[in-house]
Amino acid sequence: MHRILSKTPLSPNVTRLDVLAPRIAQIRLPGQFVIVRRGEGAERIPLTIADANPDAGSIALVIQAVGKSTRELTALEPGEAITDIAGPLGHATELVASGRALCIGGGVGTAVVHPIAQGLHARGVPVLSIIGGRSREWVIFESELRRLGQVIVCTDDGSYGRHGFVTDAARDILAQGGADVVYAVGPVPMMRAVVNLTRPLKVRTIVSLNPVMVDGTGMCGGCRVAVGNETKFACVDGPEFDGHLVDFDLLMDRLTTYREFEQQALTACEAGACKIGLA
């Protein structure tokens, strides 16, 4: 059992849970994730470790409540517990040792970019972060990233920071030759747009992929993605890959596999079948 130590709403549908997981807190590296199962009957879902406090023995999970499972997780309160957390899983981020790093986070992906920026910062690599959201209230992890370097905030509606997409800001920075390596995490269309910007400039670009997973240890192969025309399992070969080689169309398509089921579960959930408040 993993007790929830604190709960922080970050945006209208994104919540941060700081959860007791001492071993993982101690050894996790940037880019790694955990598999979380809330309780009996719940799904196993992969979540990137957004931050960790080895002294408190806690890890930070940042969860966007979109389906039944994520809604139930974000409905948990401090003092309640998550039954199963396994990890840390996946390879750690390939962190450069020198040069200027550009970290781009879109929506909840900003929480995934955060540990990468932490790792780079710890190595003395200057970090510039570009983060974005639909509007001001959707921007997350701004203050955490400001501790690690300069941050450019973008909002789609211009309600905060620069008006426009993160890719617009990235284009300007790249045009000035301001980045030797790019780390981009966010919705698939955003990551695809970023690699389309960096490909002609030959700027190495690492993306973190979020396909459907079950076990997270390489056993099921459900998380297969195509990278450089080779099939890879995101859980054991990734979750981060060279963005210039990733088949984003395939990733996007496979992410829709269970859409009907997700809708069905959500409908049942809204009709009162959710285990919200029963943990």
Partner: peptide, 8 residues
């Protein structure tokens, strides 16, 4: 057992 179990 979906949707009684969450995994489809």
């Amino acid at each position: 057992q979906f949707p009684r179990a969450d995994t489809p």
